[in-house]
Each structure stands twice: as C-alpha cells, then as structure tokens.
C-alpha cells in the first residue's frame, strides 16, 4: 500500500503542488509559472504578492490531485514549505495545507525549503548515500552543506552578498537580456569564448570561512567592463562571466568534499539546471572518483515534489506539525554543529 503525500510550495515566486508516493514516485508536479494559468504574470513578472498565490493555489492543488488520479480522501498527509521565503507567500501555502489537514483529518508536515532542494535529487536517485556535500544554488540561495543523514546538516559556506542565480540574472539585465536571464546566459555562453574577458574569480575570506562565496564583486566587474567596452560581444561576456561563476562553485564544492572526505556531491536549486555547472562539476568530481547527483531541470526550480518527497521521511517518523504551524521567513537549516550555526 503506497503512502500518498500532497506537497505545497509557495515560498517565493512559484505556486506549486505535487503528489509523491513513498517519497520518490512523482505522480504529479504542477508549477504555476510553467503551466501559465495566469499568463499575464507568467514567468516575466515574479508572482510576489500573496494575491497571485491565492489565485493559483486551489487550481494547482486540484491539478496535482487530478494528474495523480487521486482525490483528497486518498491522501495520507499534506506537506508544506514553512520557510525560508517571503512571509505573505508562505502563509498562503500554509493556510491551504492546514485547511486540508484539518478537514481531511490527515497529518500536516512542515518542510524547510532548503531541505526540499537538497532532497530533490533523491526523487530520481533514491539510492544516494550519505555522508555527502550538498550545493544549493538558486536566485535566493548559495549554500554549501555537509549532510550526514536525511535531516542532519552542517553549514560549510554561503554567499556573503549576492546569490549565484541573482548574479546571473543581474548580469543578464545589464547585458540587456530578458528575465530570467540565467538560462539565456547559459545558452549564449555556449557560443562565446570564456577566456575573452578576464574577471575576478576568487575571494579568500580571511576570517575562517574558507567555503564562503561572494558574487557581488564579479557582478560589479562585469558591469564595469561593459561600461568601458560597451561593444563587447555578448557571447564572450556571457561565456567569461559564466566560467568565472561556475569555476568558483565547482572549486568550493570539490574542496568541501575533499575536506569532509566524502565521495558524493549533491547539486540542487535553479542554477543546478545550468549545463556548464553540471558538466564542469561532473568532470572535476569524476577525476577524483566522486559521484555527482543533480535533479532534472524541472526539479531544480522551486517545486512541490521535493517538498512532498522529503515529507515522506518525516511521515514515517511521525514528525508532524500542529495546526498552528507558522511561516518563518528566515528559517535556517537545523545544523548539527554549533560552530557553523552562529553565522
């Protein structure tokens, strides 16, 4: 008998719902921006405001259930992202999940968005072994994490200014490319010369955080270069920027894996869809007999399948939330060592 969990994710731009069976069988994975039920907002302008989530959430939940061929009564639990994220957006998902839990008498499970991302590769590779080093790279996150079990973490490093995906989007904006710029930079870069423009790639933090990142300086260097040389070939600019950003991410991930003596690296988050990052990390890891896992592009972006999938592991341990579950905008990963939690 399968365990069906409905997952709901509304932490930032995306309104998403999904049904996952037994922690890895994705029966449905619905994301509003992909399906474009509100074309006037879809993709271009972020669905920041709660109202947009409010309009999309019920259709998303219904779609997720119908695609899964289930109705509410067949669900074993409902899981929802309760942080980190934008408070008004999170609350819409939580209110929806709470209502379903209450009316259908099924357990409510609160999930940390970052844990969801780290879990995403498991949906396609349930055999990933721990310990591992996880790299979450997205528009809002750049975190390097040592994972010893499904819910045991140690934060190794994070960005000190801009997130990796944010740097991609902002550089794209300065280059006059449309939003979201990350995928377009990725495409242009494939046709450009990554050595055309020298850019800073390495920031060493003196105060004992060797795995921290900084992308603000790289972003500023690109802006400065384009001011000086406005006629720079966009392909070369994209290739040089991408190479600089990817090389820092890959070096840090490999260095962290060696430092922790693990052979598994998990890549997650929207920027994990970047082909140059995937290829470079795989190449460098394989040269050291390490294995890299990353999700399909649809599971890299914010989605609810990763929430429903991870929730299964809380379900079997009966780690349920009460109906007064609240949104925590700046929710952190529950780290296992004090040294890295005071950051």
């Amino acid at each position: 008998m399968s365990c069906y969990i409905l997952g709901i994710e509304t932490s930032c731009d995306e309104t998403a719902a999904s049904v996952v069976a037994d922690g890895h069988k994705i029966l449905s994975n619905c994301i509003s921006s992909q399906i474009d039920i509100h074309q006037e907002f879809g993709g271009v302008v972020p669905e920041l405001a709660s109202r947009h989530h409010l309009e999309a959430i019920n259709p998303m939940v219904e779609l997720a259930l119908s695609k899964a061929g289930l109705d509410f009564d067949q669900l074993d639990a409902v899981a929802v992202t309760y942080g980190p994220g934008l408070i008004g957006s999170l609350l819409i998902g939580i209110a929806t999940a709470t209502a379903i839990s209450f009316t259908k008498h099924i357990p409510l499970i609160g999930i940390n968005h970052l844990e969801g991302h780290l879990y995403a590769p498991h949906l396609e590779h349930p055999d990933i072994e721990y310990p591992a080093v996880g790299l979450i790279v997205s528009g809002g996150h750049t975190e390097l994490i040592y994972i010893t079990a499904h819910d045991r973490y140690e934060l190794l490093g994070q960005t000190r200014d801009d997130a990796a995906g944010e740097a991609f989007d902002k550089v794209a904006k300065v280059m006059g490319l449309p939003y979201p710029g990350g995928p377009i930079i990725n495409k242009l870069a494939g046709e450009g010369n990554p050595k055309a423009i020298p850019l800073p790639r390495w920031t060493i933090f003196k105060n004992g955080h060797p795995f921290d990142f900084s992308f603000s300086g790289l972003k500023t260097a690109v802006i400065y270069h384009l001011r000086k040389e406005p006629r720079t070939d966009p392909k070369d600019m994209a290739a040089s920027f991408q190479q600089a950003a990817v090389s820092v991410l890959v070096k840090h991930a490999i260095k962290a894996a060696r430092f922790k003596e693990v052979n598994t690296i998990i890549l997650a988050g929207g920027v994990a869809a970047n082909t140059a990052l995937r290829e470079s990390l795989t190449l460098e890891a394989e040269a050291r007999e390490m294995k890299v896992y990353f999700p399909s592009p649809i599971l890299c972006t914010d989605n609810a399948a990763m929430i429903a999938g991870f929730a299964y592991h809380k379900y079997i341990k009966s780690e349920f939330a009460s109906l007064d579950l609240n949104a925590v905008a700046n929710l952190r990963l529950k780290v296992t060592t004090q040294a890295s939690s005071n950051r």
Partner: peptide, 26 residues
C-alpha cells in the same frame, strides 16, 4: 547592499547581511 551591510554592523547585527533581491525582504 554594501552600505546596508555597514548599517547592520552599526545596528549591532552579527549575521551576514546578503542581498534580498530574490526574497524581497530580509
């Protein structure tokens, strides 16, 4: 964002202040 990091230090905030572009509010 750089100036805001300094404002944070002046306010006695110990955690690192990052760009909230994606999340809008920190």
């Amino acid at each position: 964002t750089c100036l805001t990091q300094g404002i944070g230090i002046g306010l006695g905030i110990t955690e690192v202040i990052r760009s909230p572009s994606f999340i809008i509010v920190n």
